[in-house]
Simulated scan of single mutants.
Amino acid sequence: MVLNTSTTGSEDRSLQSSDQVKEIDLLEIGRAIWDKFWFVVLLTLIGAALAFGITNFLIHPTYRSSFTVYVNNHSSNSENQVNSLNSGDTAASQTLAQTYASILKSRPVVEDAMDRISMNAAYDDIVDDITTEVDTDSQLVTLDVTMKSAKEARNLARAIARVSPKYIANIVEGSSMKIVSSPILADKPYSPSIPKNTAIGAIIGFLLAVVIVVIRHLSDDRIKSVEELEAKFGFSVIGTIPNFDEAANNKGKKNYGYYYAASNKTK
């Protein structure tokens, strides 16, 4: 019974010692990163500079033009007026909005719009540049056109907004749509975002530098101090001898190498 108690106490001390070693290792890693602070900063700046250069000079910017329509499951009394809706009509219109979104970017609508602005392109080549989004909390459908030319994006979005009502009226009888916001000419690129990509590049550079420092630190098994020798091997240092060969190669420097003379601790 006494032996079991003693063993448990020994295990507790072993766990405490293990926790202490882990804490010391974390501190050492922190010191290693701090000692290579210049290296971390350098790689962070290089990552940011590379991301900025690639984004600014190698990636062609794209521009977006959009319009939003109001969906009504009743036909309009006039071009600019929509009948009033009750709660049941609103629910039906929200369901109908999904159909509108598909029709707005369908081949007949887009090809008719391209013909109106004399755009020399195939539907299959630009269909991925046209996206629609349905607001599930309302009766609104938004169509976005994203292209390398801001003017072409605006012109195509405007043409789709003009030709789509007649297609929708013929396909979905007894319904209508009203333009809420018209396409405008984009004055700045939609993508890529130079600040965002630069920040991502800086983060990647920082993480890469930290990983390199930590790996080099963990793979270096040299003893660098008396405290480390005692902590790792339980040796008691009884004296030090200067490393004259290293000192000769580092004349004028304060940090000379040392040989350590150590012995096992006696119980």
Rank of each mutant, 00 (worst) to 15 (best):
T8K: 07
I223S: 02
E28Y: 08
E133R: 11
H74C: 04
L96E: 07
S138F: 00
M147S: 14
R64A: 12
V237W: 02
I160V: 14
A262Q: 01
T90N: 05
F233T: 11
L208C: 11
S193L: 07
S175E: 06
T266W: 06
R158W: 08
Q139C: 01
A159I: 01
V21D: 15
K166S: 15
F52S: 14
T136C: 00
Q98L: 07
D144G: 04
E152A: 09
K148I: 01
R222F: 00
S176A: 09
V110G: 09
L207R: 03
A161E: 06
V2P: 03
E133I: 12
S193G: 12
M114P: 02
A186P: 13
S6T: 11
I160D: 01
K196Y: 12
T44H: 06
R216I: 01
N170Y: 05
V21R: 15
T5G: 09
E173M: 10
R13L: 14
A32H: 05
S6W: 04
I241C: 02
K178A: 12
L140I: 15
V69T: 11
D89C: 01
V40M: 02
A169N: 15
K196T: 14
S75T: 09
R13M: 10
T90G: 00
L3E: 10
T90S: 06
T62W: 07
N249Y: 03
V109C: 03
E28H: 10
L58I: 11
A51M: 08
L45Y: 03
I184R: 11
S193Q: 08
T136G: 05
A101G: 06
A262P: 03
I194W: 05
T266M: 11
L156P: 04
Y63A: 08
F206P: 05
V180N: 12
P183L: 08
K22S: 08
Q16V: 13
N250K: 07
L15K: 14
I46G: 11
M177A: 03
S149H: 05
M1E: 11
R116L: 09
N77P: 12
R216Q: 13
T44F: 09
I117K: 04
N77A: 13
L43P: 00
A32C: 06
V213S: 05
L104G: 06
I194R: 11
Y123R: 09
E79Y: 09
T95G: 13
L27P: 01
N86L: 04
Y259N: 13
K178L: 15
I238Q: 14
N56H: 10
N77Q: 10
Y260K: 03
K265H: 03
N56S: 15
G205N: 07
M1V: 08
D125P: 05
A91S: 14
D129L: 11
S164A: 15
L96Y: 06
A48W: 05
V213T: 13
E11Y: 12
S149V: 05
A169V: 10
E111M: 13
G47A: 10
V180W: 05
S14C: 02
V211L: 09
I103T: 04
S17L: 12
M1D: 12
K196M: 14
K265M: 08
A113K: 07
